[in-house]
């Protein structure tokens, strides 16, 4: 089942930012969103992840198939790397976290508390979370922030593995990951025409 988006319009704080979006994401494919800061990429990803309602249009094939990773990693600094990952695995009804630990080179850090990790290591742990969810569609918001070149390569490898296994990935990033499967999607042309927010409109 593909992730499909029909005539989607999304709003941030009630103000429309993107509209008329139509795209689909097939299994084994990756879609990279491009656009300047503030163009609404995060809002679009949050809408697709189901965290906020769409202003117009609809999203299909999302919901329970989405694994979402935001700017914040949702790590508990008092828990160890293993505990953090195991928790998310259990929430998603999974057990095994070894593949995720290996995939993001966290095996040596497994028993360190997450609070003692560097920013890049935390980010890797946050991304490793995706691998334990077992969900087919990864929705990633700036996944490579604070990652060094080697870690970016690890991440690209993880995405490639995910796609090869029939998964899909939708991400907003500015870095070229060297993924041949990835298509680029520029959100620039879909900038919403300036209009007042729905909640203001009622009063005009």
């Amino acid at each position: 089942m593909d992730l499909q988006v029909f005539d989607l319009a999304v709003a941030r704080g009630g103000v429309p930012v993107l509209e008329g979006l139509n795209f689909s994401l097939a299994e084994g494919r990756a879609l990279v969103l491009r656009g300047p800061n503030g163009s609404g990429k995060t809002t679009l990803l949050r809408t697709i992840a189901g965290l906020q309602p769409a202003l117009e249009g609809r999203v299909e094939g999302a919901g329970e198939r989405i694994a979402y990773a935001a700017h914040a990693d949702g790590l508990k600094t008092a828990l160890s790397v293993t505990e953090n990952l195991s928790f998310w695995a259990q929430v998603f009804g999974k057990e095994d976290i070894s593949a995720a630990l290996q995939g993001f080179d966290l095996v040596d850090l497994a028993h360190r508390p997450a609070g003692s990790l560097s920013a890049g290591q935390k980010r890797r742990l946050g991304l490793a979370r995706l691998m334990v969810t077992g969900r087919p569609v990864w929705v990633l918001d700036e996944p490579t922030v604070s990652l060094d070149a080697a870690s970016v390569a690890l991440f690209a490898e993880a995405v490639r593995g995910h796609l090869a296994a029939g998964g899909a990935a939708l991400m907003a990033t500015h870095i070229d990951l060297g993924l041949d499967e990835a298509e680029l999607f520029d959100v620039g042309p879909y900038k919403a025409k300036p209009r007042v927010s729905a909640q203001d409109e009622a009063f005009l």
């Binding site: 300036p194 007042v196 203001d200 409109e201 009063f203 005009l204």
Partner: peptide
């Protein structure tokens, strides 16, 4: 609310 909505429209 109307005043705020008008200001918002003005800005656009």
């Amino acid at each position: 609310r109307r005043a705020r909505a008008l200001i918002a429209r003005e800005r656009l």
